[in-house]
Structures are given as structure tokens and as C-alpha cells.
Design a protein around this nucleic acid. Structure first.
Length: 425
RNA sequence: AGAGGAGUGGCAGAGUGGUCGAUUGCGGCGGUCUUGAAAACCGUUGAACCGCGAGGUUCCGGGGGUUCGAAUCCCUCCUCCUCUGCCA
């Protein structure tokens, strides 16, 4: 969540940023935040001084009791009753101030970076670059992946429906091997780029959900095991970033670079339509995630570095891709700047989002209480970033569609050592 | 899952109702000594919030309670250890 002090210091910039997110009347909203914070401070001052008074009296009583002056102690005791009830009232007022301040801050998204274009929807995203060869498929061999997987019997949706429900496919034979190969390839590449591999839990508690911003914003998007109060992760970002919740790192420890493979679970409530057939949208899918914790001065160069890492994966897989700078209206709640990577899938003739790389600046670390000690020995909030590198299903879709031919589907060279075969046929 | 024990500052470990934010040791930082280092000695050493400052408030696993006053008593949750049971 946003820091009130930052809002104070950069009021105009903050308002402008929220306008980019199409938030109506940001001036009034942020003014309200500052007023609530003022109220909070004022209440704290009142409470603290009264508490100090009460503490002093208690101390006096202690001393009197010690020296045997019972009666004097009793007299002072009587005075404390009034103060005590006042303290209690102020205490309640303070926590109600704090709660409503937190509530309103939870409802305000991150301030977009200067470079974020204004815009309402995905149509206003800015194409930063496009690379790779868009394949020209013959009209007789131009199938969408949901037909190809049936033909080669490598992913079975019906079987998944039987076991679980829609959106939980069963990968079979070479389809299953392709999953395994991609995961290993992505993890190896991440390791080469200096990421430390971790395998985190795929269920998280409520606190973790709040800390990275999935809660309360995306409550309905996560599966929940209500008996135990745990959520299935929508992305490895949540457990991996939460490894650093309530930590104070040394500046020399930065950047922290972690990568992990996990299945991801999304309810995608109300998100289904004709364009989400096959592997385009699932309730469970596999993803390798890269996460960095950086010094605030380094987070934007790091974002570029991460974007480049993802692009290199796509280049190695020989997939045509483009990079989008998301507009204010399409960007995630907690992000300050997001690049989406899309691959062109020739069977559907559509661009498919396969990665999203974001800088959250201090929005997450403020909730996480993730800080580091700087050279002046001050504890300051670190910046957090993450990105998919990569999400599997749409990569699989594009690989199948783009590499199809009469002979079968040719696997990209880099995957062959992982797969042990070259063709799905 | 059942029975018992325990959670205190970076770590170890005192403290069972009143100057306890907390004895002490180790570690860390600064200094004396030294050509330099070690040893020794001296000093210093948690965090958050409010305040220009002086200073104040809060924090002894989390939350709640008793009390004029709680690390210390009570309730509850969490975690760890030991034993028993179960199980990839």
C-alpha cells in the first residue's frame, strides 16, 4: 500500500498517477487519506501523554507501597480510575483511526510510473517492440492447438473434467514430457541468469495474501481451503516474495534474486468466453516465476533486465513476440510499471500473454515490512519485482500452433535435449 | 492426533507483579595499545510510531483479559522440542 508520507511529499504526482488509473477525484481521495492520518497522529499524541501520566502514577504507587505508605498509595489509586477510562477511550479511537486509514489505503492502487501511458483497457497498451518471425502456415495445416492436442493425444480436457472440472487438463505422453522439459529449461535459464532456485509452498496463509496484495483486492480469484484458512497460490510471487516479510536485509545482500517453479491456481470467476478455449485460460497451470528484491535506485534497471531475460527465453524458443507497456487502466493493482510479453500463436492468429514483468516499488514492501539498512544505517523499504519466466500453457499453445506441419509438430532445438525427441507426431 | 515441556534483543541465556526495554556472556561497532593483526582493556550496541527538539508511547511468539502497575497471573491461538500413535 502507499505510504502516507510519500503522498504528502508528492501530492500532485500521486493525483496525476491515480488519474491515469481512471480513479475519479483522486485529489479528494488522497486529501482524505492525509486528514485521516492527521487525525491518527493527533489521537496518538493525546493518548501517549495521558498514558505517560498514568504510567507516572503507577510508578508512584509502586514506590509508596514499597516504603509502606499504604494510605497515600490508595489515594493516588483513586485518581487513576478517571485517567484509565480516558486512556481506554483514546485507545479505541486510535485503533479505529488506524483501521479506517488502512482500509482506505488498501483500496488505493499503486501510483503508476511516469512512463505508463494513460488508457482505459488493453487496447491502450503501448507496443514497445516486436521481434521474431511470424510463421506462414499453409491453409491446409493451420489448426488451433485444441485440435492439435486432440490429434496427437497429448492434452486431455475431458479427462480433467472427470477428475476435477473444467480448466484442469491432463497432460499425457509427449504433452506431459513437454511440460517437464519447459520447466527444466526455464529453471536452468533462470539459474544461469543468477537466480537462486526455491521450491515454496503452494498454499499460503491470509497474512501472506495481504502482504503481496492479493488480499483483499483479489479475494474471489483464489481457491481457499476454508477449514484451515489457507489459499492456493495464484502465482509463486506470493510465497517467494513473502519469504522476506518482516525482514531487515543488509544493503550488501541486495539484490535478492529467486526463481521458483510452482503450479498456479486461479478461479477466473466470470472470465470465460469463446476466446479462452483450450490452453488459453486454465484454473491450474504451471509457471516459473522470477522475483527480485532490490535497492530503490536499482529497481528500474532491474525491471529492464528481467524483461530482457524473458525475451531471451522467447527468442530461444523461436517464438515471435512483442512487448507491451501496460496502460494505467490495464495494469495490476499493486504495480507501478508492467511489461507484458505476448507470443503470436499462428493457429488462432492471436497474440497470447505469456509473461508479465512488474516493478511494485514500495507498494508490496510497505505491507510486507520488507526493509534494508542503508549506508546511513537507516531502515528503508526495499523495492520488489517479479515476472513470469514463463507460464507454460500458452507457450505450449504457441509452440504447437506455430510449428505444425503435415509431418507433425517440430520442437525447438533448445528443448530437444530436455525432451529426448524432436517431433510430436 | 494424544500427553508433557518450552517460546525473552543477531545468538546463547537470566529474570515469576513495581525505576525491567529487560542482568550476563558471545557476536557486532568505535577506541586504547600495535609497524599491522590477534590478545587484553575501555566504551557502545534492538525496533516502530509521535515530536523541530527535549522527550513521550508501544513492543519479551500472536491476540485478548486481570491489575493503579504484567516479560512475570489468566484465557486463546500459533510455533518448536520430547514421548506415544499414524503416515508418503
Amino acid at each position: 500500500m502507499l505510504q502516507v508520507n510519500e503522498i504528502r511529499e508528492n501530492f500532485e504526482r500521486a493525483c496525476e498517477g491515480l488519474r491515469k488509473r481512471n480513479i475519479p477525484n483522486p485529489d479528494a481521495l488522497l486529501q482524505q487519506v492525509m486528514d485521516m492520518d492527521d487525525k491518527r497522529k493527533q489521537t496518538q499524541v493525546e493518548r501517549d501523554s495521558l498514558q505517560a501520566e498514568s504510567n507516572a502514577l503507577a510508578k508512584q504507587i509502586g514506590q509508596l507501597m514499597k516504603s509502606g505508605k499504604r494510605e497515600e498509595a490508595e489515594t493516588i489509586k483513586e485518581q487513576t480510575a478517571a485517567i484509565k477510562s480516558q486512556v481506554k477511550a483514546l485507545e479505541e479511537q486510535y485503533s479505529s483511526c488506524e483501521n479506517s486509514l488502512t482500509q482506505i489505503l488498501y483500496s488505493i492502487p499503486n501510483i503508476p510510473h511516469e512512463s505508463v501511458p494513460a488508457g482505459k483497457s488493453a487496447e491502450d497498451n503501448e507496443v514497445v517492440l516486436q521481434d521474431g518471425q511470424i510463421p506462414e502456415l499453409s491453409p491446409t495445416q493451420k489448426f488451433p492447438h485444441w485440435e492439435l492436442i486432440k490429434k496427437y493425444d497429448i492434452v486431455d480436457f475431458e479427462l480433467g473434467v472427470k477428475i476435477t472440472g473444467a480448466g484442469f487438463p491432463v497432460y499425457k505422453g509427449k504433452g506431459a514430457k513437454l511440460q517437464r522439459a519447459l520447466v527444466n529449461f526455464f529453471l536452468d535459464e533462470a539459474e544461469k541468469a543468477g537466480y537462486h532456485e526455491v521450491q515454496p509452498p503452494i498454499m499460503i496463509n491470509e497474512e501472506s495474501g495481504y502482504a503481496t496484495g492479493q488480499l483483499p483486492d483479489k479475494e474471489g480469484q483464489m481457491y481457499m481451503a476454508s477449514e484451515d484458512g489457507l489459499y492456493l497460490i495464484p502465482t509463486a510471487e506470493v510465497p517467494i516474495t513473502n519469504m522476506y516479510r518482516n525482514e531487515v536485509l543488509a544493503e550488501a545482500d541486495l539484490p535478492k534474486k529467486n526463481a521458483g517453479f510452482t503450479p498456479c491456481f486461479r478461479r477466473e470467476a466470470g472470465n470465460w468466453g469463446a476466446h479462452v478455449r483450450g490452453l488459453n485460460r486454465l484454473h491450474q497451470f504451471d509457471k516459473v516465476e522470477i522475483v527480485q528484491i532490490t535497492h530503490p535506485d536499482k529497481s528500474y534497471p532491474t525491471l529492464e533486465e528481467m524483461s530482457l531475460h524473458v525475451q531471451q527465453l522467447l527468442q530461444k524458443l523461436k517464438l515471435p513476440y512483442r512487448v507491451l507497456r501496460l496502460c494505467g487502466g490495464d495494469m495490476g493493482f499493486t504495480s507501478a510499471l508492467t511489461y507484458d510479453m505476448e507470443v503470436f500463436s499462428a493457429g488462432q492468429e492471436r497474440w497470447l500473454e505469456v509473461s508479465s514483468v512488474s516493478n511494485f516499488e514500495t507498494y508490496q514492501s510497505n505491507r510486507l515490512k520488507l526493509r534494508f539498512k542503508n549506508q546511513d544505517r537507516k531502515t528503508v523499504l526495499a523495492h520488489t519485482l517479479n515476472g513470469s519466466a514463463l507460464a507454460l500453457p500458452r507457450i505450449v499453445a504457441a509452440l504447437l500452433e506455430n510449428n505444425q506441419s503435415e509431418r507433425g509438430i517440430k520442437m525447438p532445438k533448445v528443448l530437444v535435449p530436455y525432451l529426448g525427441f524432436e517431433w510430436i507426431s
